[in-house]
């Protein structure tokens, strides 16, 4: 089954139709997606800015990390759960949107960036915990993360415009 056929099948399902045509649930979903974005982005920014050496300079990296990461995970869970339902409601529109493809690519890159960061430089955090600015690779990871998540938000919003 091709991706297009799968999207068509998904869109014709009763759940997709029910979400798409509801007058209350759909706006609430979209609003929650927006709130999740705020809840996720602010702590991501705090940690990334510590990695770049722009904020929280006099605090250990690990302290910043463990203070903000739980909130990020909570926001991310809200984003994913509402995002899946939003996609479910209009898979064909997403399939046809170039911006949605950019969003998916940016999401994958953001995930890869986090994966590489956590499996390499992050393992040695103890050695540069109080360093400001932190090592070059940590700064790159912070800048990449900020850029990619901003790209995700831009592409996500642009998906809705039908440009």
């Amino acid at each position: 089954m091709s991706v297009l056929a799968w999207c068509q099948w998904l869109q014709e399902g009763s759940i997709s139709t029910a979400i798409r045509e509801s007058t209350t649930f759909w706006p609430v979903l979209e609003g929650s997606h927006l709130i999740g974005m705020a809840l996720m982005m602010a702590p991501v920014m705090m940690y990334d800015f510590r990695l770049i050496g722009f904020r929280w300079k006099s605090d250990p990296v690990s302290k910043v990390k463990w203070s903000f990461l739980p909130i990020t995970f909570f926001g991310f869970a809200l984003m994913v759960s509402t995002g899946v339902l939003l996609f479910w409601s209009e898979p064909l529109k997403c399939y046809n949107s170039g911006y949605f493809r950019i969003k998916v690519v940016a999401l994958i890159l953001a995930g890869l960036n986090a994966l590489v960061f956590h499996s390499t430089i992050d393992r040695t955090t103890a050695q540069w915990d109080t360093a400001s600015p932190p090592p070059f690779r940590a700064r790159i990871a912070g800048i990449m993360s900020l850029t990619l998540w901003t790209a995700v938000i831009f592409a996500g919003r642009y998906t809705a415009y039908n440009l």
Partner: peptide
């Protein structure tokens, strides 16, 4: 910008 403002206040 709204996400930054709302998120900061959330924190």
């Amino acid at each position: 910008a709204l996400a930054v403002l709302l998120g900061s206040l959330f924190l």
